[in-house]
Design a protein around this nucleic acid. Structure first.
Lengths: 338, 338
DNA sequence: CTGAAAGCGCTTACAG
DNA sequence: CTGAAAGCGCTTACAG
């Protein structure tokens, strides 16, 4: 399968030099218009394909970017990162780059091995998509090429990161509920479980504070045990008018719980979620929720990476990408508030 | 970011030639053991990284395989192909290869453009993942490198393909129902909608035939209109004891319909699905269904590709990958049949 | 065991 | 406008 037609072959066919062919095919100065046209025509006929390896070796650039996803985020039910990767791939294309997916195996993560894309110089930069261990972060820092953390950050690492704005999303969502007249609003989630649940809680909390609403313990409902397994949600004795759930799946669970207890959404109480995944449209009525702007995350990551490739010293720090509220039918405007 | 350490740098540091360094680093014959060790040590210290572009240019091999997914299969809710890609990527790794994802845009498909991975010689072979247009299949055939169709095939194209065995999966599932004593079994799906719905129907049909059970029109329930939108499933007047649904999502829809009508699964009637996606475990009781063996598909695709890379003439034809039944609690053994 | 020479395909000065 | 020369980093014969 190495029927490789080279510039030399085209040059020989036309009795010119390969330098001239190179100039013609790259639309560079120094070839007469007619020769250029002729060369391009012959190239097409001969099925010539550019050899990017030769370019790579000259420029020391592979025109690839590695996207590394830790293995544990790649299970059956977690296609989120794959979708992010897909968008990254699409945006890289605009810059003439390609994305190489690299699943970081648990072993490689434990043994602090460099990924093969790095040790074989297959990529010009690397995007780490999804939290890796503290120790591996150090390994990443030892890699001598532009790098970027996506969807997580490390306070000590000198690595730029792009994360979704969990805090602001929950803040906006809660503001929205308050604007519609809700005053007694619960938060559903184990705030000691993950940092995103905690950050979302904080956004909810800030909204309450800003509106002079007192937070009370009874308004914090647990959704999972310390190992992350969902538990039955205990509804408070005096029911709030609205629930902010830390994610759509928990909202789904809450719906079931409410139905059992004889409450109807949104007539008796309103519910909002987070993520806009399958669960958001699996419940009836469909859930008002926050959608992570995957495209924006990918676009930003690629932009930053390209900038770093241009000027390696470039820093962007910790950048937040805001989600957008998807308004559906799980929230009711309270009469009280006109 | 081109602080590239080369073999020459290592050689200079030790006062040897780069040829010797090359041999040492590649564990080739012709270097004394002690020198080899020393070279490897220095290489490590200097942070040397192999330049795979140089290898590529020598061998005419990129050690990359392209995976092309038509844009229309990459929406929000279709992560199936991304998961396949992920597995391909994993298996390629075993062979020292990398996978480059290439989303085929609708425009490129319409205009029959070669993908950039091809025209820039970025890959040694290409896997087309998901049905492309008749016209584009021709374009694929014009590509002068090993290629493979995955999850679809074309009767006229001289291209090997790997597809899931829809027919056999439904056949087995129906056999299972019959073995448990079911005799009156319905199929849910619009058999004119897609070829996989049709093939699954045929598997169901064959099972009936083999067991001497008569198929009747009343046993074929429609699930979607000609544009693919789900419609309300009409339950037959005389209820069957079991339903074979063409996919899990439709089984999910059927559950709702059955619940409305006052039937309970599996007490009153049994239900099976296909795909083993989220919907399978969203219903209660969880659904017995067929899981596509993504790993097997990916593994086979990579194996075939590697063989083609070895010997380009190699043909494998149309290969079917069988799914596996996932037994859960949506099926009841009928008393009648001990 | 060790290394000088040539070459993979292309591009970048530079000379004509 | 056109092209000979050198070089990118590595490997493959081949000579010593």
């Amino acid at each position: 399968m190495k029927s490789n037609i080279t510039m030399k072959d085209i040059a020989d066919k036309l009795g010119v030099s390969s330098v001239t062919v190179s100039k013609a095919l790259n639309d560079k100065e120094g070839v007469s218009e007619s020769l250029k046209l002729q060369i391009k025509k012959i190239a097409g006929e001969m099925g010539y394909r550019y050899n990017s390896a030769a370019k790579s070796i000259k420029e020391g650039l592979s025109y690839n970017v590695g996207v590394m996803i830790p293995q544990r985020f790649t299970g059956m039910n977690s296609s989120f990162y794959l979708r992010v990767y897909q968008q990254i791939s699409l945006h890289l294309d605009h810059y003439g780059y390609f994305g190489i997916l690299n699943i970081l195996s648990n072993e490689d993560e434990d043994q602090l091995n460099f990924p093969r894309v790095y040790s074989e110089n297959k990529v010009d930069g690397i995007i780490i998509l999804g939290q890796v261990s503290k120790e591996y972060i150090q390994t990443v820092q030892n890699m001598n090429m532009p790098k970027l953390f996506l969807d997580f950050y490390d306070e000590h690492a000198e690595v730029d990161s792009i994360i979704q704005d969990n805090f602001y999303g929950a803040y906006e969502l809660t503001n929205y509920l308050i604007r519609l007249g809700h005053r007694d609003i619960a938060y559903v989630g184990n705030i000691y479980s993950t940092s995103s649940i905690q950050d979302r809680f904080l956004g909810y909390y800030k909204s309450l504070l800003e509106h002079g609403l007192a937070f009370q313990e009874r308004l914090l409902l647990n959704d999972r045990d310390e190992r992350g397994r969902y538990i039955d949600i205990q509804l408070p004795e005096r029911m709030p008018t609205a629930f902010v759930c830390n994610c759509d799946q928990v909202a789904y669970n809450l719906y079931e719980r409410l139905t059992e207890a004889g409450y109807s959404v949104p007539a008796d109480c309103s519910v909002v979620g987070f993520d806009n995944d399958v669960y958001a449209t699996l419940v009836s009525p469909h859930l008002t929720t926050v959608e992570v702007d995957i495209d924006q995350m990918a676009r930003t990551a690629v932009k930053f990476m390209m900038e770093k490739l241009e000027s390696p010293g470039r820093r962007n720090g910790r950048v937040l990408v805001q989600g957008k509220i998807v308004f559906r039918d799980s929230v009711k405007r309270l009469e009280a508030n006109n």
